[in-house]
Each structure stands twice: as structure tokens, then as C-alpha cells.
Computed example of a mutant assay.
Amino acid sequence: MDVEVKKVKGCSATKVSYITHGCLTMDRLHLLPVPSFKSGFTTCALINVPAIEHVPLEDPSLGVHKITSRTNHPLVTPPSTTAHSLVDQETGANTLALSDSSTDPKQAWEALYPRGSINPSGKIPGGFGFYLAGPKDFADKLTIEGGATHVVLSYRMMLQHDWEWVKGGKLPGIFGGEGDTSYSCTGGQQQHRCQCFNIRPMWRANGQGELYTYLPLLDSNRDRLSAVPPYSKQNPDYGMSVGRGAFSFDAAVGNWISLAFRVKLNEIGQEDGQLELFVEGKSVIHAVGLVFRTSNTSRIKGAHFQTFFGGHTEDWASPKDQRAWFTDVTGAVVG
């Protein structure tokens, strides 16, 4: 059904399409920000649409594998959302708004970032890491010959209410490539870069958001990603920072936000791949003319569900024990 939603003063009223589930509502476009799709899955109980399979937020059901050693991702009851401030766009005044907790999830994976932790391989391991293929039917559609080349993967996340950003850190994203080489595009790897891709969001100082990408090392990819506003650059040793400042993670402090990744693979021999990031249903980063693969055996493989502070040096480390929560994992085959 359509529901009239009044925005804060200074913004226009809008209509938002909601999916109803009992007395609860949630905008399905936050997790599935495409007009149509062929099939998919979700762990979100609030989404009830045709062709979407409901599965539990559990490792076996979601094809979790290659779990990073010395880390874990316990399934917990996350804390309630908190009050947050709204800024009047005309006057600049701050007002306190109570968050609507009606769509708060009942379960979530918890990431712990201990004080002094910088990444899972550091002296003090922090966060967690694993790969997620999705339920068997979804995973099969991705990996079979001639399989899906256009996919959306999404989730919701929340940071603890007194979160401290420091210099930055990584969050879960999407990956793919040729066979086991698809796991090679991370951690500064330079080999096999034409046989894999890895795209993860990253928070920077003060909550600035960006995409941190590993794509085939081609001039065309560098040029097109470098053109993404407001700021993008090729890092000398690691991945490429894309669209830094295009969005902020501030809203995730004490509240749930959705992140959705849309990847459309290029045709072999063509520069026509597409990459798009949606935050709360809004497209914030969009790049076209990309090359994700140079072989038909390269596939979208699923989610690289990794998060940590860093960076690889101590000045990136979490200044205290901090926690984040992740839930409502969703995937859809678009084409």
C-alpha cells in the first residue's frame, strides 16, 4: 500500500511504498532497491514479496564459509535504537527525535572491536570476517554456467550509540571472480587482479563513507572510478577509494540503516559493467563503463562479510571496546 510520509520542515512530502507484516512496516526498497527481480532471499521478516525466500540468519542457511581465524560473529539480540538529532534545513536548529523501534530486528550478528584492535590479522583481532554465498538456490543461480550477471546484495547495520570513528574501517560488501581466485582481491593483493573483484564500504574519519574497491587493474576502470564524485583516488598499495564523502554513516550510530550493492557484470570484451551503492534506498554512488571480468568463468560469488578498524597501523585502532550489529541479509537475482 502507499503511505503518506511527512518529512522534516524544509523537505517536501513524499509517498513511500511499504511492505506490511502484521502491524509492522518497512520500505522494501531499502533492501531491494530495484523495480523488479527474478528471485532472491532475505532474513528480514518484514519483507513479504513474491519470489523472495525467507531464511534464518544462520551460517548453514546462508552458505557462510572461510571464517577468519580468531574471530566470531555471535547471533545476539541487538540493543534498542536510540534517540537521534534532526537538523532543521532552514534554521540549522537541532531537535531530538525518537527513533521508531517497530522495525528493529530481533536477531543480529555482533561484531566486537576490542580496544587496540585494527584488523583480524593484527596483534589484537577485531571485528569479524567470512564469505557468504547465500542459500543453495541463490548460490547455484550465481555460479552455474551462463548464470546471473546482475545481482543486488544488502543488509542492515547499526553502530553502538557512543561510537568513535578514529581514521576508518571496513564493512561488508560484495565479491566475485574465477573459482578460488575470487578470494584473492583483498588485503593489498596485486596478483590475479583480472580474475577477481571485491567491493566493500568503508567509513573514514568523522563518519564519511566511501566504497573501497578492488577491480581489474585497467586504465578504463581507474579513469571511470576516479571520476566518481565528490572524491575518488587510487591508493598506492591497496584498493581504490571511490566516492568518499558521497554519504555519511552518522545515521548508523544508535540506529539501523540499510546498505545495498548492485553489480552488473560486463559482457566479455566490453566496458559496460555497472556498480551502485544505495544507503537507505537512495543511490549515493554509481559508476558505469566498468570491467569486472575478462572471462566467462568469472562470477558474482556473494558477500564478503568482513568488518574491522583499519588500516594496518596502530593509529587506526579502536580506542575502546566497541560493537556493531548486522542483520536482514538479502540478495536478489536481477538478470
Rank of each mutant, 00 (worst) to 15 (best):
268 I>R: 13
161 H>S: 15
140 D>T: 09
213 T>R: 08
42 T>D: 00
23 C>E: 03
285 I>E: 01
8 V>G: 09
163 W>G: 06
31 L>S: 12
159 L>Q: 11
298 S>P: 01
92 G>R: 10
260 A>F: 00
325 W>S: 00
214 Y>I: 03
43 T>V: 05
77 T>E: 06
143 T>H: 10
294 T>D: 07
135 P>A: 00
50 P>R: 09
57 L>Q: 12
138 F>N: 13
274 Q>N: 05
47 I>E: 05
74 P>G: 06
216 P>V: 04
28 R>L: 07
105 P>H: 03
315 D>Y: 01
97 A>S: 15
209 G>T: 00
131 Y>D: 09
218 L>A: 06
141 K>I: 09
162 D>H: 02
162 D>A: 01
220 S>R: 14
105 P>Q: 03
42 T>S: 07
230 P>K: 09
84 H>L: 06
190 Q>S: 15
212 Y>M: 04
232 S>V: 13
86 L>D: 07
8 V>N: 08
11 C>H: 11
289 G>S: 15
303 A>I: 02
142 L>Y: 06
92 G>D: 06
204 R>P: 07
301 K>G: 02
16 V>F: 10
47 I>Q: 11
143 T>D: 15
25 T>P: 02
205 A>Y: 09
206 N>V: 02
214 Y>P: 14
32 L>Y: 08
19 I>Y: 06
320 K>M: 00
109 W>T: 04
237 D>N: 14
286 H>R: 15
317 A>S: 12
63 G>Y: 10
104 D>M: 00
123 K>E: 12
280 E>W: 03
214 Y>Q: 12
20 T>H: 03
228 V>H: 13
190 Q>V: 10
249 F>S: 07
334 V>H: 00
5 V>I: 13
290 L>A: 10
70 R>H: 01
9 K>N: 04
320 K>R: 11
45 A>H: 08
312 H>P: 00
192 H>Q: 03
106 K>P: 01
167 K>Q: 08
121 S>W: 13
326 F>V: 00
302 G>I: 00
80 S>R: 15
175 F>I: 08
275 L>A: 02
146 G>P: 15
263 V>E: 04
240 M>W: 05
239 G>A: 05
313 T>S: 12
170 K>F: 04
212 Y>I: 06
227 A>Y: 15
318 S>L: 03
289 G>T: 14
69 S>Y: 13
234 Q>W: 04
99 S>E: 04
223 D>F: 05
116 G>E: 08
86 L>F: 05
231 Y>A: 00
207 G>R: 01
121 S>K: 10
234 Q>A: 11
197 F>P: 15
322 Q>M: 10
243 G>T: 03
285 I>T: 01
